[in-house]
Simulated assay, not measured.
Amino acid sequence: MTTRREAVRRALTESSGFRSAQDLYADLRADGSKIGLTTVYRALQAMSDSGEVDVLRTDEGEAVYRACDTEDHHHHLVCRVCSTAVEIEGPAVERWAAEIGAQHGFTEVTHTVEVFGTCARCSA
């Protein structure tokens, strides 16, 4: 599993945007890998559980994955057309989440925020 997991990690690292398990599987098979789709899903789940990759859901509900540059909490600006993603910080969002949680007596507040748009290259 380790070699196959490394292959999935490498495929994610070479991509600039979020990718589905099916996309990664197709790329790996096209490159000659004998990896199975179930193995790709398992590797992605393990990497997601360990915090090695970020996961988000598309408008259609599909899980897509990306190897991130930082382990620190961050958000993404994602192109709707090509799926290119940019890691962004959101200090205003962080403050708002903490404040709204405190106003309602919540502790250990977490949140997920992703911003979608069309990148400059796709807009041209």
Rank of each mutant, 00 (worst) to 15 (best):
R5V: 03
C119T: 07
A120N: 06
G61M: 01
G32A: 08
V55C: 05
A98Q: 09
C79A: 03
V64P: 03
V53A: 03
S16C: 06
G17M: 04
V113R: 06
A46T: 13
L77R: 11
R57F: 12
L37I: 09
M47E: 02
D69G: 15
W96E: 06
C79H: 02
V78Y: 00
D31I: 01
F18V: 08
C82H: 01
H73M: 08
R80C: 13
S83K: 15
I88E: 01
C82I: 01
D23S: 15
V40P: 06
Q45D: 12
W96G: 10
L44T: 03
S83V: 06
Q22K: 14
D27L: 10
S20C: 04
F18M: 08
V109I: 07
T118C: 08
E87L: 03
V93W: 04
T58K: 04
Q45I: 06
R42P: 05
T107P: 00
H76C: 10
T70W: 02
T13Q: 11
G36P: 05
M47F: 07
A85F: 03
T118G: 06
T2K: 13
V55I: 06
V86R: 14
E108Y: 06
A85Y: 04
V78Q: 05
V115K: 06
Q45M: 08
L37T: 04
V64N: 00
T70G: 12
T70H: 11
V86I: 15
T58I: 10
R95F: 11
T2H: 15
G105T: 08
C79Y: 01
A7N: 04
H104M: 05
R57I: 04
D72I: 11
D23G: 05
L37F: 14
R95K: 12
H75T: 05
L44Q: 00
S33E: 07
V86N: 09
C82P: 02
V55L: 10
R4M: 10
A30I: 00
Q103T: 08
E108Q: 05
D59V: 08
R19L: 12
S20A: 10
A92M: 06
V8A: 00
A21P: 03
L44G: 02
S48P: 07
